[in-house]
Write a protein that binds this DNA or RNA. Structure first.
Length: 197
DNA sequence: CCATGGATTGTCT
DNA sequence: GACAATCCATGGA
């Protein structure tokens, strides 16, 4: 998977739809899920040019391929990115939505602060990981992961090959004011966990 | 189920 | 002081 990421976000982001993301936290608890929605933030993207200032929290966007970049958004939420280019390039992809697989009970507790009921509501189940801020909460990912390496024991975060979607859709990115016209979002058309259509 | 508007806070200007 | 790669509550169909 690491080889694939080096090719740049525009090629890597659609390829990651269907891949499996695995996280083992500090206590050894494991959660994983299937990636169903990604976005690309390539070099010279109008939405990322403001990050060219060398702020520490933004620098991982410009790090070497495979580096984890936690983007802080709207004062309260983090988003999980993976750097995709050579160091200094400024190229990363964003994981926007995940379909939960193992560790469902832990995800439920992380997000709702309560034990998962025997018969969970379908709407609440979908609400678990159907957005970039939501999946960070469900997996229990912390901003301290910024700058760590994907696939390294220190990060606990890994991406492995999964099942490619039967139908993939390419469309515009969500929530941006700059670069909103670019078609740099991809999602699995058959997944109910996609954040927005 | 879908659409709309408010809340909220670190970072940059 | 303004902005932002979001989320959630609320109201109506």
């Amino acid at each position: 998977m690491e080889e694939l990421i080096k090719v740049g976000s525009i090629v890597a982001a659609p390829q990651l739809v269907g891949a499996l993301i695995v996280y083992v936290d500090g206590r050894g608890q494991k959660v994983n899920g299937r990636i169903v929605e990604t976005e690309a933030y390539p070099p010279n993207d109008p939405s990322t040019y403001k990050f060219t200032g060398k702020k520490l929290s933004r620098s991982a966007h410009f790090a070497d391929a495979g580096t984890i970049f936690m983007h802080f958004s709207h004062g309260a939420y983090n988003c999980l990115n993976i750097a995709c280019g050579e160091a200094g390039t400024g190229d990363s992809l964003l994981i926007r939505a995940i379909e939960p697989m193992d560790g469902l009970g832990l995800m439920w507790h992380n997000r709702y602060g309560e034990l998962m009921p025997d018969k969970p509501l379908k709407s609440q189940l979908h609400n678990l990981t159907s957005g970039p801020g939501k999946l960070i909460q469900a997996f229990g990912l912390k901003p301290e992961l910024n700058g760590a390496l994907l696939g390294a024991a220190t990060s606990g975060l890994t991406i492995v090959a999964g099942s490619p979607p039967a139908n993939i859709v390419q469309t515009s990115r969500v929530g941006l004011t700059k670069g909103a016209g670019l078609q740099l979002r991809w999602y699995d058309a058959d997944s109910p966990f996609v954040s927005r259509r």
